[in-house]
Computed example of a mutant assay.
Amino acid sequence: MRTVVVSTIVSLDGFVAGPGGDISRLPMDGSFDALNLERLRAAGTLLLGATTYRGMVAYWPAVAEDPTVSPAVQLDPSVAELHRETARRNAELPKVVVSDSLTPADTGPWAQTTTIVRRAEAHAAVAALQEEAGGDVLVFGSRTLWGDLLPAGLVDELFLLVGPALLGAGLRAFPDGVPAHLRLRDTSRRPGSDSVLLHYTVDRARPS
């Protein structure tokens, strides 16, 4: 059995993006980068929505070639190898993208490691991934996707990096009416960061 893990950054007032999908005001500091790499090291498959996938395939291949193109590396050259490893793992891992709009032409340099699943088939595809052996099935971002999988009982764990930003409006982390009971497993905070990592498991033993 594999674990479906959601990893995302969220503002203190509960948004994963601002109006129009703007994520620029979320505090993506070193804690965010380190969390992403930690989760990638434990993953066997990336499970993504189309918007997140398009953003990643447009960004990470260039970083794999030259980490200095990353704004984070330009600000702090010491994180260059962290970003290089992140880019390499993003490229190498098998990727399952749930989308009715994405086509093979959109997969670019990740064509050989990307499988597109239509939304009507998503629940069955994720359930099948859970039954396999291997590393975690990792969901980065992709709130529309995991907001659908969570009430369907297809999410096992959530890593929520709560950052010190108030967006006021935008895309809420949890859609209205999503039924789930979460059990806190751990909290942590990296030295020098004002973000706090909350690690939850989904408790299916209790009624929602």
Rank of each mutant, 00 (worst) to 15 (best):
R2W: 00
T3D: 09
V4R: 15
S7T: 14
T8C: 03
T8R: 14
I9G: 08
S11P: 07
S11C: 05
D13G: 07
F15W: 05
V16Q: 09
A17R: 04
G18K: 00
G20P: 01
L26T: 00
L26C: 01
M28Q: 10
M28V: 01
M28P: 01
G30F: 03
G30W: 07
G30L: 14
G30I: 05
A34R: 15
N36Q: 06
L37M: 04
L37I: 01
L40C: 06
L40H: 06
R41H: 09
G44C: 06
G44N: 04
G44R: 10
T45Q: 07
L47Q: 12
A50H: 14
G55N: 10
P61L: 14
V63T: 02
S70Q: 11
P71S: 12
A72N: 10
Q74D: 09
Q74T: 09
D76C: 04
P77I: 01
V79T: 00
A80K: 03
E81H: 00
E81T: 00
H83L: 11
R84P: 02
R89F: 10
N90K: 06
N90D: 08
A91K: 14
E92A: 12
P94S: 14
V96T: 14
S101V: 08
D106P: 14
G108M: 15
P109A: 15
W110G: 15
A111W: 12
Q112F: 02
I116C: 07
I116M: 11
R119G: 06
E121W: 02
E121N: 07
A124K: 12
V126Q: 09
A127R: 11
Q130V: 03
E132W: 02
G141T: 08
R143G: 05
D148Y: 06
L149R: 11
L150P: 03
P151D: 02
A152M: 05
G153Q: 05
G153P: 07
E157L: 04
L160P: 04
P164L: 08
L166D: 00
A169M: 03
L171K: 10
R172P: 09
R172K: 13
A173G: 12
D176H: 07
P179G: 08
L182Q: 11
R183W: 09
L184M: 10
L184C: 08
R185G: 07
D186Q: 15
R189V: 13
G192R: 13
G192N: 15
S193H: 07
S193R: 12
S193F: 11
D194Q: 11
D194P: 01
S195E: 13
V196Q: 13
L198T: 06
T201A: 03
A205G: 08
P207T: 06
S208I: 01
